[in-house]
């Protein structure tokens, strides 16, 4: 961090310029001589990174700091926004409720919302990882040209509009949709499929499956399948090969898939609203409603801060676990 700020403040002047000025007459030889210190040929000086850093500071770090600050402020008498007065009421509201007489009691309502989010995100992540393992294994055993085509097929849903993908399931699960049509046809009668927590779960799995397949595929596509043959030659059975060779190779993919599925699923908004209807309340919906309808910004900010902490923990866990998994896989290979 300190070196990074030094770059920004200009305390560390670019060595390029000084080296350039010392021997202006013989630049070509000098280029080779100072190759390690001067700007590598074909690259730009580090000053060109500044716009990206400014954008990141302003619109990623800045908002995060603001939201954390908001969570410690007070709610105005009327309307949204915050009053610049320190208060931890927002965090108290997460766990406790105060009635009209000023008595404080434990309130599990918001914990339940976190529980729903956690539950939906965990199931989504688990199903996505299991399915992605099978398809990634299958993909990585195809011919290279088929593999490219399959990667393309997996990429298309990834780049399709989230709302379009969620809407597609609204069509399917609708009471006049094909599934209910089939149920009526075989005489079971129509069932309420849309606006259930199951529908929201299907939407989440559908959305995050490509997120899991891609890291899983990149872990398995680099795997040397001759090791599997070697394992068979050494007398291993199918299950042993799966468990001790292939699953090990897939481990880095599993950790990235957890990070890529769990965190966004935990904070999801669109699928619970469109597919879960009013029945599924996840943290994302709670946050959004705090900033629009109920208008308790500090409380919404406190919820966001909790999500950010969960994200940070997951990120740290994934990078530690990812490093370990990569090492394990390296040992296996």
């Amino acid at each position: 961090m300190s070196e990074h700020t030094a770059t920004l403040d200009g305390e560390k002047p670019p060595i390029t310029d000084t080296s350039h000025h010392t021997t202006p007459t013989n630049r070509r030889r000098h280029t080779l001589f100072a190759a390690a210190n001067r700007i590598k040929p074909g690259m730009l000086s580090h000053w060109y990174a500044i716009p990206a850093i400014i954008v990141g500071l302003l619109f990623t770090l800045g908002p995060i700091c603001v939201i954390v600050a908001f969570s410690f402020m007070s709610q105005p008498e009327v309307g949204g926004g915050v009053v610049y007065k320190f208060s931890t009421n927002a965090y108290k509201k997460l766990l406790f409720t105060t009635d009209f007489l000023g008595r404080t009691s434990f309130d599990p309502r918001y914990l339940k919302v976190f529980g729903t989010s956690l539950w939906q995100a965990l199931i989504t992540t688990f199903v996505c990882i299991v399915l992605s393992f099978f398809i990634a294994l299958w993909m990585s055993l195809r011919k290279p040209s088929t593999q490219r085509l399959l990667v393309l097929l997996i990429n298309i849903p990834f780049w399709t509009n989230l709302i379009v993908r969620t809407y597609a399931w609204m069509l399917i699960l609708n009471e006049n949709g094909p599934i209910n049509g089939f149920l009526k046809f075989i005489g079971v009668g129509s069932k309420q499929l849309l606006y259930t927590s199951g529908a929201s779960l299907i939407g989440l799995i559908f959305t995050f499956l490509p997120f899991a397949i891609m890291p899983m595929y990149s872990a398995l596509s680099g795997f040397d399948f001759r090791l599997v043959e070697a394992a068979y030659d050494l007398g291993a059975r199918k299950l042993t090969v799966m468990r001790r060779i292939i699953l090990r190779a897939a481990k880095p993919g599993v950790t990235s898939a957890i990070a890529l599925c769990f965190i966004p699923a935990f904070g999801s908004y669109v699928q619970p609203v469109l597919l879960g209807g009013g029945r599924v309340l996840m943290v994302g919906n709670l946050i959004a409603s705090q900033f629009s309808d109920a208008r308790n910004w500090p409380f919404g900010a406190a919820l966001s801060t909790v999500i950010l902490l969960v994200t940070l923990l997951c990120g740290v866990a994934a990078s530690i676990g990812g490093g370990k998994a990569a090492r394990d896989a390296g040992m296996a290979v």
């Binding site: 990174a49 990141g56 966004p264 994302g284 999500i307 950010l308 994200t311």
Partner: peptide, 29 residues
């Protein structure tokens, strides 16, 4: 093109800063 010229730590911090918007849940961002 500039990240190559930055110090190792500087480039790591800058990459983190830029990629953070990928990881943070969209609702929160």
């Amino acid at each position: 093109l500039a990240a190559d010229q930055m110090s190792h730590a500087g480039s790591a911090v800058a990459s983190w800063l830029i990629n953070a918007s990928l990881i943070i849940p969209e609702v929160v961002l």
